[in-house]
Design a protein around this nucleic acid. Structure first.
Length: 352
DNA sequence: AATACGTGGCC
DNA sequence: TGGCCAAGTAT
């Protein structure tokens, strides 16, 4: 039986990961959120730091969102951190600090969809819900040679039923971890290790020679270009930041004052924008340097960033209103997106 | 249903 | 080296 073969493989080859060997739903929840669209190697250090700072769901509930985002800095998909924090508050108040223990209640929580609800339900409570993530899609599509696209509603429904069937009466807690780990280590996206695969004889795609063409995806992402002009306004170790609001990327994170354009513009044109005038009208300024056009690639957009460094005197900084001045010693208190983090690191590397 | 949401690694 | 991919979810 397929489920038993995969479990046997798992018992022999599984990795010892920080979130394994526990049935604490809090730890499992944190790990699952961090692992969404994120590699194990990247998530591991974040997981350890996070659990160290917030050992229980109530510790997390009591924190400021800014602190949570700071711990998440660099991990990406920051709505995960915001939802994690909001959900911790719900569990702390509505559930008296005790993690809900039914699939239905778990699925209601912000940031938890069908995959994560099944993962927590099975890993923590051994409930029989088949976890369907990218690994499981890949393994099932190959073993059964399914050429339905996995990124459509119909495809997801089909694979969810197939996953449930394949799990059968296997122990949910171990089976779900096993097939996910099998996908991550053995049945990998590129160059899967079919030579040593224990289920090679049962794999239809291997028989067809179609392993490298599965799973099938129908959609392709299109990227757009945006042009970011950051104003690094500094005076010795102090500089100006603003908080990002709204529904755009990096919500509730901090950055240098930003002038955005949908196309590249000259420094001369920047001088004519309303934001520039708002910041500098009637003030003296000297552009010290310009770091031009570093392209930061996100999944759906290319950000062409230019950082304009301007030295200003302290009195002038104080007059600029919706922005705040921070000292380099306060950097640890504010979450920054990668482009800003990179510039801060390069600028303040020699300053204690 | 289609799209937005980050970042880093890989070939 | 640019495009694809990695333990998805919300809208």
């Amino acid at each position: 039986m397929l489920s038993n073969q995969i479990i046997d493989w798992y018992l022999q080859y599984k990795r010892d990961l920080p979130w394994r060997n526990t049935s604490d739903p809090y730890k499992i929840w944190i790990s699952e959120i961090m692992l969404q669209q994120t590699r194990v190697a990247t998530a591991t250090d974040y997981f350890n730091r996070f659990l160290n700072q917030f050992p229980t769901v109530s510790d997390l509930a009591m924190a400021d969102e800014r602190e949570v985002l700071k711990l998440w800095q660099g991990l990406g998909y920051y709505s995960r951190a915001r939802n994690l924090h909001a959900t911790a508050k719900i569990i702390h108040t509505d559930y008296n600090g005790v993690f809900p223990n039914t699939y239905k209640d778990i699925l209601k929580l912000k940031g938890i969809g069908t995959y994560t609800a099944a993962a927590i339900s099975s890993f923590a409570f051994n409930l029989p819900y088949a976890a369907l993530d990218g690994n499981v899609f890949r393994v099932l599509s190959r073993v059964y040679s399914i050429d339905k696209p996995i990124d459509t509603g119909e495809g997801k429904k089909f694979f969810q039923e197939l996953a449930t069937e394949t799990m059968g009466n296997a122990r949910p807690e171990i089976y779900n971890q096993a097939i996910i780990e099998f996908g991550a280590l053995q049945c990998t996206p590129r160059t899967p290790n079919c030579v040593t695969c224990p289920i090679q004889a049962n794999c239809l795609a291997f028989g067809n020679g179609q392993v490298d063409q599965l799973p099938l995806k129908s959609k392709q992402i299109k990227t757009k270009n945006r042009y970011f002009y950051y104003l690094f306004l500094s005076c010795e170790n102090r500089f100006i930041i603003e908080k990002r609001e709204g529904k755009d990327i990096w919500k509730n994170m901090y950055q240098y004052p930003l002038i955005e354009s949908d196309k590249a513009i000259s420094t001369k044109k920047l001088l004519q924008t309303s934001k520039w005038k708002e910041l500098f009208e009637n003030k003296e300024l000297v552009i010290q340097s310009i770091c031009e056009n570093v392209v930061h690639k996100l999944s759906h957009q290319n950000l062409h960033t230019t950082i304009i460094h301007i030295n200003t005197d302290i009195d002038q900084l104080k007059e600029i209103k919706p922005y705040q001045i921070i000292d380099s010693s306060e950097i640890e208190n504010y979450p920054f997106p990668k482009p800003i983090e990179n510039h801060i690191n390069a600028t303040f590397e020699n300053i204690p």
